[in-house]
Amino acid sequence: MTVPESALVFDTGPLRHFSNKGWLGVLRFVAGQRPVYIPDSVESELNEATEYVSATRAVLDAEWINRHRSTDLDYIEAFAHLENRLVVGRKNRGECGVLAMGQIYKCEVVLDDAEPRTIAAEKCIRVTATVPLLCEAIRTKQLTTVMVEALADDLLESKYYLPFGRGGFRSHVLENGLLDWDEL
């Protein structure tokens, strides 16, 4: 199965955090016309997560999220070499699938952890994170700042990493020149 280069491939972490706080629909919104994919390794991690947090089920039930399951040897070989850098037992297999999709299909991947992002840079895989996607949505007037502020505070509650504290979104983006006053 070929995955279009325009696709966004999500890792387990962002999907789990957004769904657990009831914001999964926002990710669909910011993806816009771009198809959204998860590899079977992420699907497997999400299935395991539903045993502890039932809200994660929303990701698995979302029809707009395409599953990628492949027996293509190029893909499996890419996965295998990534697995050697990241995986012990079953931990981190999700991000291996995400990176392998980025490597083989040249699509953009959404990752938050440092090590897979470093590997993405080494292999010239296009990589982003959820917060930059939200910031871009504000710029293009798809989302309001008020909404993203509330979302960011919710994510912070669930231990999601953001480079600012609760209530700090607006001042952070202004201080760092990431958004202008007129974009807020």
Binding site: S70, I76, A80, E83, N84
Partner: peptide
């Protein structure tokens, strides 16, 4: 054919990393 996840499980069961198959 196998998927990446299946091959990862097979490697773990055999006590080898899956990259060794490649």
């Amino acid at each position: 054919k196998v998927t990446a996840l299946e091959l990862s499980e097979i490697g773990a069961a055999l006590g080898v990393r899956m990259f060794t198959f490649f």
